[in-house]
């Protein structure tokens, strides 16, 4: 496992400079079979990150730029009349790819957003009574502009729950910025990137995540976190059962990435901001400060 993921992470770190933690979280999210939401201002490398991951994992990649006039059919495809054969033929939309980058998802209307999110949830698309399965694996990396920007439809909380993690990238530090300014153009490097992981290896990794051991003691800790989030005054609503499950899966994936076959509280704490932040406070992007009271108050031992 070290052999498979370490070079991959190293390669990704060559492209996106100084964002080691975010890259790890993104990879963790993928091997936990979750979808990822990146929230940040334009230009910090959201697209680059997703594109890099798609290359390294060797997945079909499609970017969908969400705009205010995008329609559900623009995402999932539509039946088009074939004049020669005198029948309707389903025209597959961009969603039929293994990795989707849904760029600036909050620029579109809720209608278009829900088309994507429904597909994410059900792993299939139904058009005019016909069901079309989505490819496997299927990942969505959605990016979102901070909601205070004008002309946006922020995802409602119920939809946010469908993303396993939300991360923000932030500005690069001075060193990384300098390297960025000096280096080659990113998209050229990406195009040259080798595929680091075969589909079988990815499948194995995803299988290995489910087999990571979770001790009763750790479940106690996890449940205490969930209970705390539900009872604390800080949050309007606590973690949902789906949220709790997400936290467990993400922790297991993190443990696997740390080359452990059992989850320890460190893993939970590592993924907690990314997993719980958007579930507890949709409006704020400062995940660390959202979960700070949990990390501080819920006893580990």
């Amino acid at each position: 496992m070290e052999n498979t993921l370490t070079p991959l992470l190293n390669a990704a770190n060559q492209i996106i400079l100084g964002k080691d933690r975010q890259i790890r979280l993104a990879v963790c999210c993928l091997i936990a079979k979750g979808h990822l939401l990146i929230e940040d201002i334009p230009g910090v490398g959201k697209t680059t990150l997703s594109h890099t991951l798609a290359r390294l994992f060797g997945l079909d990649y499609q970017r969908i730029q969400f705009t205010s006039d995008i329609l559900p059919a623009d995402i999932i495809g539509s039946s088009v009349f074939d004049a020669e054969r005198h029948e309707f033929r389903f025209h597959h939309g961009p969603i039929f790819n293994q990795m989707i980058l849904a760029d600036e998802i909050n620029r579109s209307t809720p209608k278009a957003q829900s088309a994507l999110l429904e597909a994410m949830e059900e792993e299939q698309v139904t058009v005019e009574g016909q069901t079309y399965p989505l490819p496997k694996p299927f990942f969505v990396i959605a990016t979102q502009n901070p909601s205070h920007q004008i002309g946006t439809f922020p995802l409602p909380e119920s939809q946010l729950d469908r993303f396993l993690m939300r991360i923000e990238l932030g500005y690069p530090n001075r060193e990384a910025e300098r390297a960025l300014l000096l280096g080659k153009q990113r998209h050229k490097i990406i195009a040259e990137l080798p595929v680091m992981l075969t589909p079988e290896q990815l499948d194995e990794l995803q299988q290995a995540v489910t087999e990571v051991y979770v001790s009763p003691a750790l479940l106690d800790y996890l449940q205490n976190i969930i209970d705390f989030s539900r009872q604390s005054d800080e949050f309007a609503a606590g973690l949902s059962p789906r949220g709790g499950l997400a936290l467990l899966t993400a922790s297991k994936a993190w443990a696997l990435m740390e080359q452990r076959n059992a989850v320890i509280p460190e893993d939970v704490q590592a993924v907690l901001p990314a997993v719980a932040g958007h579930r507890l406070k949709a409006g704020s992007t400062d995940a660390a400060s959202i979960v700070a009271p949990i990390l501080e108050n819920v006893p580990v031992v």
């Binding site: 006039d69 329609l71 059919a73 539509s78 039946s79 088009v80 009349f81």
Partner: peptide
């Protein structure tokens, strides 16, 4: 009228 969607056979929409 949003002609693009009309062309795709999705019906008439107006912006």
């Amino acid at each position: 009228i949003h002609w693009k969607s009309y062309a795709k056979g999705q019906g008439l929409f107006s912006k």
